[in-house]
């Protein structure tokens, strides 16, 4: 048992190391990790600069979330898509380690670089604003911010399974990207969306986590009906649910692709 856990941890470490090396070796990653957050931050600031600091902060949190989505969630799925394109999915799946641990290693790296993206947004807006954005509870905010990233990573793991399942997962994720921005309240409150879509929004951990972040950071912000603690419980519950289903989804998807035989399709 201990040997198996060690072996899986090693695989996770190897995957993390390869993700970092691939990131450093590939200049195209500068766009989602460094340039996109700057653009998201500046555009949001310029759109709301004449309004109250509260509204600016609201928009900036959404912008930070969008850049983190790109890096954490999209990156996790995309890396598995790359395994398909490179033809490395077959040799990786033929190794003794469950593929889930390879994905987890990548997700850790994408989480770190997602944090970097979020931090860049705040730094850029802070510079444009002339001083640091006024956060009501900075320490709690940072802790929750890290949790938000983890909640994105949990969704990212499930998305990765889609890339193992089919070579068309990229299309689905590209289409879903803007729906996710809107549906989770990155751009504007979900209460502005049609009522029927609200339960769908609540299936995603970032909806809860982002609302909790805003309650914490913006004085006078009320958010969803159940308040900060309700948001937090919802965020933790949905994140745990995503992590739990990720393991099951991965083992089923692995079995499915071995049945269908589409591992080398790209």
């Amino acid at each position: 048992m201990a040997a198996r856990s060690y072996s899986r941890l090693r695989s996770l470490g190897a995957s993390l190391r390869l993700a970092v090396l691939s990131f450093l070796a590939d200049p195209q990653w500068l766009i989602p990790s460094m340039i996109a957050p700057v653009i998201f931050g500046l555009v949001s600031y310029m759109l709301f600069q004449g309004t109250s600091p509260t509204l600016v902060l609201y928009a900036i949190l959404g912008a930070g979330m969008m850049s983190m989505w790109g890096q954490t969630l999209y990156g996790s799925g995309w890396a598995t898509g790359q395994d398909r394109n490179l033809g490395t999915l077959e040799p990786t799946l033929s190794a003794p380690t469950p593929y889930l641990y390879v994905v987890l290693g990548r997700v850790i790296w994408n989480t770190v670089s997602g944090l970097l993206g979020g931090a860049i947004v705040f730094a850029v807006v802070g510079i444009a604003y002339g001083r640091p954005l006024p956060l009501a509870n900075p320490l709690e905010f940072v802790l929750l911010f890290i949790f938000v990233i983890l909640s994105l990573a949990a969704v990212g793991i499930v998305f990765s399974a889609a890339y193992v399942y089919t070579r068309y997962a990229g299309f689905i994720q590209n289409i879903g990207e803007f729906a996710f921005y809107v549906g989770t309240g990155c751009m504007f409150p979900i209460v502005l969306l049609p009522f029927w879509s609200n339960p769908v929004s609540l299936l995603f951990p970032p909806t809860w986590a982002l609302d909790a972040l805003r309650i914490l950071a913006i004085p006078g912000y009320h958010g969803l009906a159940w308040g900060f603690w309700g948001d937090l419980i919802g965020a933790v519950a949905t994140t745990v649910a995503y992590l739990a289903i990720a393991g099951t989804v991965f083992s089923r998807v692995e079995k499915h692709v071995l049945e269908v035989g589409n591992l080398s399709d790209w």
Partner: peptide, 25 residues
Amino acid sequence: LGGERGLYNRVSARENLRYFADLYG
């Protein structure tokens, strides 16, 4: 399986092998 594909192109041969050495324990 051979062929042009199946390797991590952006990293070195040694890094490719190190990665799979870890996956294989």
